[in-house]
């Protein structure tokens, strides 16, 4: 499985309150949430994002609240993948559970700039900055998480065992 898109680049500690502000949590409709995705950190995000685009951020992406609405909003906005130095732990498991691909790769984060065209091969973890013609190796997931991801998320995985 591959993803290819334009990069939206953010810094450290992008929290779930800016990914999807609580004032919009009176709904759980993914498309409605997507309309406000990243609103408090980047008002233009929803106008500029296209299917397949990629978010790249520094440390501790998704810190704060446990709201699954955050990865849901990102996924429903069309984003194909989030690459960061590190993820906050609840966001990390939520993303895996709902099937939003995420990758930890400080080398890629260090190089990739906003607007770059980036391609990700999820099977190998290879990240290619097409604009800069550079390739990076994302950290592989443990086997159990690979199973979750390839099942399409936790619900499909659990349903196989029931």
């Amino acid at each position: 499985m591959n993803a290819k898109g334009k990069v939206f680049r953010y810094g450290d500690n992008v929290d779930t309150d800016v990914i999807i502000p609580a004032r919009y949590l009176n709904t759980s409709d993914p498309l409605e949430l997507a309309e406000h995705c990243m609103e408090d950190i980047d008002k233009e995000f929803v106008n500029n994002v296209h299917k397949g685009d990629i978010i790249v951020a520094d440390d501790n992406f998704g810190c704060g609240s446990s709201r699954e609405h955050a990865p849901i909003a990102i996924k429903a906005s069309g984003v194909s993948c989030v690459i960061a130095n590190s993820f906050a732990r609840i966001f990390y498991r939520n993303a895996i559970n709902i099937g939003l691909p995420i990758l930890e790769c400080p080398e890629a984060v260090n190089t990739i700039e906003s607007g770059d065209e980036v391609e990700v091969d999820f099977d190998s973890g290879k990240i290619t900055d097409v604009t800069k013609n550079q390739t990076f190796q994302g950290q592989a997931f443990p086997e159990f998480m690979q199973e979750l991801i390839s099942a399409g998320g936790l619900v499909n995985y659990i349903n196989k065992t029931l």
Partner: peptide, 10 residues
């Protein structure tokens, strides 16, 4: 520990 809604459902 805190988790998301899918973990809660499962």
């Amino acid at each position: 520990t805190g988790v998301g809604s899918t973990d809660m459902a499962v």
